[in-house]
Computed example of a mutant assay.
Amino acid sequence: MLAVLEKWKEGISYQSGLLATVCGVAALLLVVTDTYTKPLIAKRIEEDQNALLTEVLNGAPYANKVFANADNIQFDGRRYEIYPVKNAQGTTTHYVVRGTTEGYGGTISFLLGVNSDGVISGVRILSHSETPGLGDKIELAKSQWILSFNQHSLKNTSLWAVKKDGGTFDQFAGATITPRAVVNGVHQAMQALMQQLPQVKPTEETTDGKQ
């Protein structure tokens, strides 16, 4: 009897059945895990986005769920998501743009906050793969460089480049590609926003080049 059982176990039908059972159990575990973790991941992403939202708005209050609805646009070969920011009266006070640019280590994803006058209230990096100790200085936790975009607009800033290229913005010692990419990315995002929202009127240029 044992010999017959062992022979049956070696058969194709047994092996196929065992494999199907294992795959079924694995699939069930994946479904259960996804069902349990998906809401937690979504909540964490929402919390992280809202924390960055406060930063790119430079503390300005808002009353709507900013990331609930996006206006997806294409500009110069890149895709952008534009979110209106409204106050308690329902008036749009700012716009938030999610965009990407190509850095030294790959794609850099960022959030850009712009007030209704077309002036940048803040920029923050969402994700990147830049070199630690060099390119990662685009993170606020590593340096204050990202704050240099504050108060710039298309009207008061004509040289959207790093100083090495004759522009307005500093580069990093030993790493020019990363800040150059972010400056170009933010500039393109600003152009995309202004093209999409012609009612946004850039502020008048001041004598020092900044508002």
Results as ranks from 00 to 15, higher is better:
A181I: 10
H187A: 05
Q171E: 13
A192R: 01
Q196D: 03
V182M: 13
E204V: 10
T203S: 04
L193R: 02
G174V: 08
V186W: 13
L197S: 09
E204L: 08
M190E: 06
K201I: 13
A173G: 13
M190R: 11
Q188R: 14
H187E: 13
A181E: 07
P179D: 03
N184Y: 07
L197Q: 15
H187S: 14
G174I: 10
G209C: 04
R180S: 15
H187M: 13
I177L: 13
A189Y: 06
K201T: 14
M194C: 03
Q196S: 10
E204K: 14
H187L: 02
D170N: 10
E204I: 06
Q171T: 14
R180P: 06
Q196I: 02
V183E: 01
V200S: 02
A181V: 12
P202N: 07
G174Q: 09
Q195F: 07
Q171W: 05
M194E: 04
V183H: 05
T203Q: 10
A189G: 10
Q195I: 05
V183W: 00
P202S: 12
I177M: 03
P202W: 08
A173T: 15
Q199G: 03
G209S: 05
Q171N: 14
P198T: 12
A181G: 05
P202L: 14
Q188T: 12
G209W: 07
G185R: 03
T203A: 06
Q188V: 05
A181P: 03
V182S: 08
A175G: 10
A173V: 14
G174R: 08
